[in-house]
Design a binder for these strands. Structure first.
Lengths: 311, 311
DNA sequence: CTGAAAGCGCTTACAG
DNA sequence: CTGAAAGCGCTTACAG
C-alpha cells in the first residue's frame, strides 16, 4: 500500500494525495478531491511509509529516550515516560527507549535519524526540558541545580514537619554524586522555608552492616534527629533495615520517609511511607519541546505523600 | 558525509564504495581500490545513513523489544536485554525498547520498519525465541508452556530441599494467569524430580491483609509446609511481610525464597534469599534468530541462588 | 486547483 | 574489475 496506490485509486497524482493526507496549509484542495482521497486511503488501509518519509524529511518521527545508568522503576521515570509517550503519540511520533548500555551509540542512533534524543537523567535533574533543538544532536542544556524537585521535596519534609518532627536528616546514597548534592541543596532550602532545624545529611552505604553503622552514628552524633527523609526508596529501605538491625522501630524510634515511590515500599513491614511523583506533565512538556512546539505545562514534578507506616 | 563524498574522495563510483564497505561477496575489488576507499571513508568519518539504507533494504537495522505490561526490573529481563543488545550490536543492529503503552502501535512500529519486533513476555515464557521471521511482522509463536525456567525453578526448590524442607508451597501472584499456571506445572515437575511432597500452591493477593490471611490459611490448611517458593520477588516480599504480620519469623517458622532477583530483596530484613537468573544467552539467541542467523546457545535461563537470610 | 519532476542516500542488478 | 542507472516511498518546490 503506497501513495501510488492511493493516487491510482482516487484518480489524482501522488502529490495531491500527499497534500491531502498531510493537510498541507499551502495548498487548497477541493472538498470533492479531498473526500475521494481520504476515502481511498481509508479503504486501502494506507499507512505512510515512515522510512521513506524520514529520508525525505531528514529525520524520522521517533524520539529516543536514553535511560542511561539511572533507575527506571520509580514513579518519576514511569510517569515521565507515560507523558512523553502520550504527547509524542498525539503528534504522530513514536517514543523508543534506548536501554542502558556499556558502549556508546551516538553513531548507531544517528543512523536512524531520530527527531530528538532525550536523556532521562537530565530530565530527572532539570524538569524535563531535554534538548529541544530538533536536530537530533542531543547535547543537553545541563543547567544542573535547577529545582524540578523543589515542590515534592518540600512535600516530603512537610509530612515530617506535620507529624511534629523538627530535626530531620537527609539520607543520601553516596556523597558527591551530583544528584545527591542537588537534592541536598533543594532540601536544605525547603527545611528553611518550613522553619525546621538545619538539615543534617548522611550517607547510607549499600552494604547492610555499613548502613547500620551509618544510622547508629547518626543517632549518636545527632540524638535530636527524630526523622529521616530519604533520597529515594532504596535508600529509605536500607535505612529502615538499619533501624530494624539496631533493634529500633519505625516510626516510633525514627521515622523514615522515602521518595519517588517504587511500589516496593508497600511490600515490606513496616510499610514505607513515601512520596509518589507525577512527572507526566514534565514528559509532555519535554515532548513538545523536542518537537519544536511551544512548551506548555509545568517543567517540575508534583508529589503526594503515600502514607503507609514508616512515617 | 555521504557515499558520494567518499566516492569522490577516492576517485571511484558510489557503487564501488558500497561494495567495499559492505564486503559484497559477489564482487572482487582490487586491493588498491579497496584500501583507497577504506581510507577515504575513515578519514572523512563516513557513517552510512541508516534511513536511506533501510528504504533500500526494506527494513531498518533496528530490533524493537516490546516490554508489554510485564515487570522489567528482575534479573531475567535485565540480562535478557543485555544479551539481546550485545548480540544485535555485534551484527550492526540497534536494540530499541517500546515502553509499555495503553494503546496499540503495531501501525506506528510498522512505520519505522524494524527488522523484528520481539516481545519480552514471550521471551520470559518461552526462552527467548521471539518471532525470527525477519519480516517485522512480530506475531509470536506462542508455544506456551515450554520450559525455559525448568532449570532455575529446580534450583529454587533444590535450595529448599537441601535445607531439609520436604513440604513446600508455591506462592503465586494470582490464579489463572498463564505465567502462573506455567510456573506451577514446571515447579510440580521439579518437586517430583527432587523427591519432594507434591507441591501445594496458593495465591498471595496484593492487599496486605489479604496476603496475611493467605499465609495464615496456608499454615492452617497445610501445617506440614515449612517453606515457600515464590513466583517472583514481589510475591516473596509480600509473603515475608505476611509472616512478619503473623508474628512469625523467616526462615525459622517458614522459609521463603524469591525468584528472579530484583535487588530489592537485599534491602529488607530479613533479607530475601532468591534466585538470580541469567538470560543473557537467551537474549543473544533471540537476537540471532531475529536476524535470521542460526540459533546458537541455550534457549533457557540459568539460575543461581543468592543466599541471604529468608531461606 | 492539480500534476510532472527532482531528490533524500543508499544498494544492486546490469552492462561494459 | 568498475560505473551508469534504476528505484525504495515519500515531500515539495515548480510549472501549469
Amino acid at each position: 500500500m503506497t501513495l501510488n496506490d492511493v493516487a491510482a485509486a482516487s484518480g489524482v497524482s501522488r502529490a495531491t494525495v500527499s497534500f491531502v493526507l498531510n493537510d498541507d496549509p499551502r495548498q487548497t484542495i477541493s472538498t470533492a478531491t479531498r473526500e475521494r482521497v481520504l476515502t481511498a486511503a481509508r479503504t486501502l488501509g494506507y499507512v505512510p511509509h515512515g522510512i521513506a518519509r524520514a529520508l525525505r524529511e531528514g529525520s524520522s518521527r521517533i524520539v529516543v529516550l536514553d535511560i542511561g545508568p539511572g533507575r527506571t522503576d520509580g514513579s518519576f521515570a514511569r510517569s515521565y515516560v507515560r507523558g512523553l509517550d502520550a504527547e509524542l503519540a498525539a503528534h504522530d511520533h513514536l517514543l523508543l527507549v534506548r536501554p542502558a548500555t556499556p558502549r556508546s551509540d551516538r553513531q548507531a542512533l544517528d543512523a536512524i535519524a531520530p527527531r530528538a534524543v532525550l536523556r532521562l537523567d537530565e530530565a530527572a535533574a532539570c524538569g524535563g526540558d531535554g534538548d529541544g533543538d530538533g536536530s537530533g544532536d542531543g547535547s543537553g542544556v545541563g543547567e544542573s541545580g535547577c529545582a524540578a524537585h523543589a515542590d515534592p521535596v518540600r512535600t516530603q519534609l512537610r509530612h515530617l514537619a506535620d507529624r511534629g518532627h523538627r530535626h530531620i536528616a537527609l539520607a543520601l546514597p553516596a556523597h558527591d554524586l551530583p544528584p545527591a548534592e542537588a537534592r541536598l541543596r533543594v532540601a536544605r532550602e525547603a527545611a528553611r522555608q518550613l522553619g525546621l532545624a538545619p538539615l543534617i545529611s548522611f550517607v547510607v552505604p549499600r552494604p547492610r552492616a555499613a548502613g547500620t553503622d551509618a544510622v547508629r552514628a547518626l543517632r549518636a552524633g545527632h540524638p535530636e534527629v527524630t526523622a529521616v527523609a530519604a533520597f529515594d526508596d532504596p535508600v529509605a529501605l536500607r535505612t529502615l533495615t538499619a533501624v530494624h538491625d539496631l533493634g529500633l522501630t519505625a516510626p516510633a524510634d525514627l521515622a523514615v520517609i522515602g521518595y519517588d515511590d517504587t511500589g516496593y515500599g508497600e511490600l515490606v513491614a513496616p510499610a514505607l511511607t513515601t512520596v509518589h511523583l507525577d512527572a507526566e506533565p514534565c514528559g509532555r512538556r519535554a515532548a513538545r519541546t523536542a518537537l519544536g512546539l511551544d512548551a506548555v505545562g509545568p517543567a517540575t514534578a508534583s508529589g503526594r505523600v503515600v502514607v503507609r507506616e514508616s512515617a
